[in-house]
């Protein structure tokens, strides 16, 4: 049984805007799913629908087998949510804020657990500080502590590392890894591909309210591993010389540069061999630069590929794409 099961969920707002267009998704117990997508793709709406903050217009959502509408108590008690915005009561003390969350979820007071959570998130020293006195990164940790205070089996992290420093990001990844080790199912939305790369088992891409794909991280990484080496030449070339034809080279900038595409995940990039061949062919190189496909490039590629494959696809045509 999937830990989270989203089936044909649509969310239409009063103005007619459809934020979710028949999304289906299954998330297995203990896995980490990273949901990628640009702003306004529907990531937060999907999370809100699962957590009970937004009511879906159509479709069903189950968490741990419990329907989030008809059996909301059982479903919600399994879920912890770390929202994107830093939504905290400014004058509350850190420890009180965490205790409040635990109480709200119907759990008896447990100071030892609260201490454990606060220590894990390096907040123990700040337990008696008011939220308003904390830095942005600390506030984000408080949000996580609140979500963990009631021992959720499913944790939603909505852009958890947006605007936080590298150190905190690493800390959060470690925390996520520990939670996964405890069997917690984690769904995070992110803009950062390296974040998905670092911690996710599967990656889902969502755009304009549709899930475009849900794929195992490794296979997606291979596709994302494309890099380009741009070689600026001392003299322009009219054509690619014969010995270099075996490489995937493109002549750009009126022959003043060559672009070599290669895959970072393959054992050999072929760069050394290419450079050797260039020297052998007597081609002088002025400069070299590498660039990697950005998430944006990959994302645009996925979206256009999707549209080419199904040019007249009705809304929700990709709804089964996410099913595992």
């Amino acid at each position: 049984m999937a830990m989270v099961e989203v089936r044909d969920v649509r969310k239409k707002y009063e103005g007619g805007f459809e934020a979710l267009k028949g999304v289906s998704l299954q998330i297995e117990e203990g896995e980490i799913l990273a949901l990628l997508g640009p702003n306004g793709a529907g990531k937060t709406t999907l999370i809100s629908a699962i957590c009970g903050i937004t009511q879906p217009s159509e479709g069903t959502i189950r968490v741990g087998g419990h329907d989030v509408v008809t059996d909301y108590r059982a479903a919600r008690s399994l879920v912890g949510l770390v929202p994107q915005e830093i939504n905290l009561e400014p004058f509350q003390k850190v420890a009180d804020a965490v205790r409040f969350s635990r109480g709200l979820f119907g759990k008896p007071r447990n100071d030892a657990l609260v201490e454990e959570v606060l220590r894990k998130l390096s907040l123990w020293d700040k337990r008696d500080s008011r939220v308003v006195e904390l830095s942005g990164g600390m506030k984000r940790r408080v949000l996580i502590a609140k979500a963990l205070s009631h021992e959720p089996r499913v944790l939603f992290l909505d852009e958890p590392t947006a605007g936080v420093d590298v150190e905190l990001r690493r800390d959060m990844w470690e925390t996520v890894a520990e939670l996964k080790a405890d069997g917690v199912t984690i769904i995070l939305t992110t803009h950062y591909i390296e974040e998905a790369e670092a911690i996710a088992d599967r990656i889902g891409v969502i755009n304009k309210g549709e899930i475009l794909l849900v794929e195992d991280k490794q296979s997606l990484m291979t596709r994302m591993g494309q890099k380009e080496l741009r070689i600026e030449l001392a003299e322009p070339l009219d054509a690619i010389p014969e010995p270099l034809r075996s490489f995937e080279l493109a002549r750009v900038d009126e022959g003043r540069s060559l672009v070599y595409s290669y895959n970072t995940t393959s054992e050999r990039s072929g760069i050394a061999r290419l450079m050797g061949q260039l020297t052998d062919a007597g081609i002088a190189v002025r400069d070299v630069a590498t660039s990697q496909n950005s998430l944006e490039d990959i994302f645009v590629g996925l979206v256009s590929a999707q549209q080419t494959a199904t040019p007249d696809a009705p809304d929700g045509a990709c709804k089964t794409a996410g099913a595992k």
């Binding site: 957590c51 903050i53 919600r76 949510l81 400014p90 609140k146």
Partner: peptide, 17 residues
């Protein structure tokens, strides 16, 4: 106030009626 500062998310996602 929770609506204004956004902390209402917690009430809405908690197992409360």
């Amino acid at each position: 106030f929770p609506k204004f500062i956004g902390t209402i998310y917690e009430l809405l996602s908690a197992p409360v009626n």
